[in-house]
Each structure stands twice: as C-alpha cells, then as structure tokens.
C-alpha cells in the first residue's frame, strides 16, 4: 500500500476515535444534570422563584418528559449548532454569554502559551547545554519549586509584589483598549504559565540531553559542524517531539487554571464565568463550559497526533513500517 494511503487511513481512524471520545464525553457531561438530587427542571432554576408555569415551560423546552436518549440526542443536536440552552441568571442564550467573554480568555491563553513556548523551551535548552553547572542547578531548583507553585499562589505573590507594592501593573479587571488590555494581562499570564513553564523546561532539558548523547550528534560535532547548527538541526529538531506532546497534555490543565487566574485578578472571562456560574447555580453555563474545555483537550490532542509525524518523520516511519 502506498504511503499516502496508509497515512490517510491513519487519519481517518484517528478522526473516528476522536469522534467516539467526544460522543462519550458529551454524554457524560449531559448526564451530570441527572445526577443532581431532585427534579431536573427545579434544579435548573434553584435559588430563583419559578412558578409552575415557568417550570412547565422549562420541562417542555428541555424535553424532561421525553425518554433520556431522545433528550440527549436533541441536546447534542443543539450543541452542534451552538445552542447550549438558556442561562436563567443572565436571561440570555448560554452561547452568547460565553461568546462575549471568550476574547479575554483567549488573550490570556495566547499570552501564556507564548511565555511557555519561549521561556520554557529556552530555559530547557540552557539547562541542557550548561548541564551540571551552577546555572543548571539553579534552573532545576526553580523548576522543582515552579512545578509545585500553583496558579493561585503565583497570582497572589505577583499581585501583591508587582501590583500592590510596586504598582507596576493593575491588580484588577480586564482593561479597555489594546495597550491597557495587554498591560492587564501580563501578571495573569505569568501566573497562569509558571507551572507549565516549569514542566516544559523539564521535558525540554531531558529530551535535549537524551539527543545530545546520541551518536549522530557526536559525529556531527567531530566533523566540525558549527555548534549552533548541530544544536538546531540535530538536537533540538529531534527533541521537539516530546516537547510538543507534553505541551498538548498541558492544554487542559491550562484551560481549567484560567478560572483560578481570572478569579484571582478579578478578570471577566470564561474561566471566572465558570466559577460565578457555580456560585449562582447557573448550571446551563457550567455544563457548556465543561463541555467546551473537554472538547478542546480532545481536539488539540487529535491535532498533535496529526502534526507529530510532520515534525518528527520517525513517528510516521514507525507507523507505516507494518
């Protein structure tokens, strides 16, 4: 069989696997409503006064009088069209509540991802190249502490030092206008990325060290190839696979941690929306955000599986060598 055909079959089977995972996760998220004690319609309007007519309307809208699987099917159809139901707190569609808060969260994630990719990988490279020196030991100590420093601790320290004490950065809110927004996102982005930077540094370092010890690197060095060319073309390129894989695994943790960071810095975004919605018992919004986070994780992992062979052709070769 030709190589492209094998690859196409691989992609299709991965796609089917992803669809199956998404189906099961959506079913789990959907069923969570029915784990709640009591009548689901009154659960949705907990803490708010709702007359019998209102309850009847909700029952009708969500089809609580229909069989479970029919209800799931209708719900899934709605979700695929971007209809996540209605928020009884905001009196709006859930999708528009989330949509209006999405840009702030995406900015936060983009800024953190940039930090993680640049600082994390750079620190890992430095650690590997300066292996055994004082720089390396310091980095590894920072990594051990950084990996254990949760977002809420990082947020607390950054906020009280650079926000309150030094007054360099704002301590609360999202800001208005492009520059102000960027100014507001600096501290939250650092707080969000500390743990993940530490992990990426660790993986980059150990993956680089593994490659540095290989024969082809030794050969390249002994042939007199310039040091940076060796590192770039023979070490880093080969070390990239594990780094990309780990980064994908970190995505879901990062998405959840936005709720911590946004809450800590009083920002308005999807993460803080998740927390306020739990507090305000707005279950429709909670359910939608949980589903989106899980779906994002599954999709990103699928994409990494697709991209991995392009970065590292050895993976593709191993896949088609059967």
């Amino acid at each position: 069989m030709s190589r492209t055909a094998t690859r196409a079959i691989g992609v299709v089977s991965r796609l089917a696997g992803m669809a199956a995972t998404l189906l099961v996760t959506s079913f789990l998220v959907f069923s969570s409503l029915y784990l709640a004690p009591g009548d689901p319609a009154s659960f949705l309007v907990r803490g708010r006064s709702a007359g019998p007519e209102e309850l009847a309307r909700i029952r009708h809208r969500y089809g609580f009088d229909e069989p479970f699987l029919v209800r799931y099917w209708d719900w899934l159809g709605g979700v695929l069209h971007g209809d996540f139901g209605r928020s009884y707190v905001f009196h709006q569609d859930v999708s528009s509540v989330i949509w209006s808060r999405l840009p702030a969260t995406l900015l936060l994630i983009a800024a953190s991802a940039l930090l993680i990719a640049v600082v994390g990988v750079a620190a890992g490279i430095v650690g590997a190249l300066r292996r055994g020196t004082r720089t390396d030991s310091m980095l590894m100590l920072l990594v051990t502490v950084g990996a254990a420093a949760p977002a809420f601790v990082a947020a607390l320290l950054l906020r009280s030092l650079f926000g309150v004490k030094l007054g360099w950065f704002p301590t609360i809110g999202n800001g208005t206008g492009v520059l102000d927004r960027l100014h507001h996102v600096v501290l939250p982005a650092i707080a969000l990325s500390v743990t993940f930077m530490a992990m990426v540094t660790r993986v980059t370092r150990s993956s680089m060290l593994e490659e540095l010890g290989r024969e082809h690197v030794e050969v390249a060095v002994s042939r007199g190839t310039p040091r940076w060319t060796v590192i770039r073309r023979h070490v880093l390129r080969n070390a990239l696979g594990p780094i990309v894989t780990v980064s994908a695994l970190l995505i879901s943790g990062m998405l959840v941690s936005t709720s911590i960071v946004e809450t800590a810095f009083g920002m308005s975004g999807v993460g803080s929306l998740l927390v306020t919605s739990v507090n305000q018992m707005d279950f429709q919004v909670v359910q939608a955000i949980v589903l989106l986070v899980v779906a994002a994780f599954v999709v990103v992992n699928f994409l990494v599986d697709l991209v991995h062979p392009l970065i590292d052709p050895r993976v593709a070769a191993a896949g088609s060598a059967r």
Partner: peptide, 9 residues
C-alpha cells in the same frame, strides 16, 4: 480528557 479540577467544579 477531564482535568481533575474541572471534574471537582
């Protein structure tokens, strides 16, 4: 696919 903190929330 479900991060622990998300499941807890």
């Amino acid at each position: 696919a479900f991060p622990a903190l998300l499941v807890a929330i």
